[in-house]
């Protein structure tokens, strides 16, 4: 074990892990955050706390993670390099660890043009790969960027994102290998709607021996409506939503589309569980956290093992 992370303990014990996303409030509403968190408590092994997702200003992920921790959650602190330079990122890592956080997901982040602060400067002092390496060097070498020693180094379980559906396709697994080399312990993938493409990606990863080096959690997003499916297919960066899937949701009456979306999510979970190298799932039920228990029950993942 590299860290005191409960998620690491869980994965290390060979359990199929379940993580879910919990987006902080747009504002300082602690009750709203706690309410979202309450749907996920004891239902998932860890919660991802997003960092100004899609470049929309929200409560800081460090603060929201600390609040969720007081509820008994195991937070995965998401950190993007879009908004903070290496001074702020390293400082926040110190602070996050001091607050008891033990998992971090290192991301570059969506470009600021997607959010509600389009005129902001994009910092991008580091990229996600360099952030992964920075967190690893803190943990394993007790050093910050530049090589200075630190006392009481943050020892984080290090996560990274992977998008099996982005282009150029041939490069995707190579990039995964680079992230593992840089220090990633676990991977959470982009939402999987194209299961065939995901299978191919996992086979490539397995052939390169990567599935032995890293825990891969398959990204699952339940579709709420045909409109949402179409939106994700055309407007969201890096998504692959096949036409058959959109047609399937659109093919049922609008009041039944949410149930169909959940059915698809459950089927996807069952399919990814069969794929070699998948160590768990990461459920991104966007503004739909209260549906997470229902989805997990239906997928046979209703009870979480104690570690």
């Amino acid at each position: 074990m590299k860290t005191e992370s409960r998620l690491e303990k869980m994965l290390n014990a060979g359990h199929f892990a379940v993580t879910a996303e919990c987006g902080p409030s747009k504002g300082s509403d602690v009750d709203a955050l706690r309410e979202k968190g309450s749907y996920l408590l004891d239902r998932v092994d860890a919660v991802n706390v997003t960092d100004n997702q899609t470049a929309i200003v929200r409560m800081s992920s460090v603060a929201a993670s600390a609040i969720l921790k007081t509820m008994g959650h195991e937070p995965i602190l998401q950190m993007v390099t879009r908004d903070r330079n290496r001074i702020a990122l390293q400082s926040d890592l110190f602070g996050a660890y001091a607050l008891g956080l033990r998992n971090v997901l290192c991301l570059t982040g969506d470009h600021q043009c997607f959010g509600n602060q389009k005129e902001a400067v994009g910092v991008f002092d580091l990229d996600s790969m360099q952030l992964i390496r920075t967190v690893r060097d803190m943990r394993d070498e007790s050093k910050i960027i530049g090589g200075e020693d630190i006392q009481v180094a943050p020892k984080m379980f290090i996560g990274a994102a992977a998008n099996p559906f982005a282009d150029p396709v041939g490069w995707r697994v190579v990039r995964l290998a680079k992230k593992i080399d840089a220090g990633a312990d676990f991977i959470q993938t982009q939402c999987i709607f194209n299961i065939d493409r995901f299978r191919t990606y996992m086979r490539q990863a397995d052939d390169m021996g990567l599935t032995d080096k890293v825990y891969i959690l398959a990204g699952i997003t339940p579709i709420k409506s045909a409109g949402m499916a179409r939106y994700m297919a055309t407007k969201v960066a890096g998504m692959d939503v096949p036409k058959e899937l959109i047609d399937r949701v659109a093919g049922v009456p609008s009041d039944k589309q949410a149930a169909e979306g959940i059915k698809i999510a459950v089927e996807t979970i069952q399919q990814v569980r069969e794929i070699k190298g998948v160590a768990g799932i990461h459920l991104m039920a966007i503004e739909w956290e209260h549906k997470v228990p229902e989805i997990l029950e239906a997928a046979g993942l209703g009870t979480r093992p104690r570690v």
């Binding site: 969506d110 982005a166 982009q190």
Partner: peptide, 26 residues
């Protein structure tokens, strides 16, 4: 690269285009 990535490409690259705008080549 719109994000100055040194170890890219990011997950927003699609059909050789940047996530920022389809007119921008990745």
């Amino acid at each position: 690269c719109s994000k100055k990535l040194m170890n890219g490409p990011c997950g927003g690259s699609k059909d050789g285009r940047c996530e920022v705008h389809p007119d921008i080549p990745c």
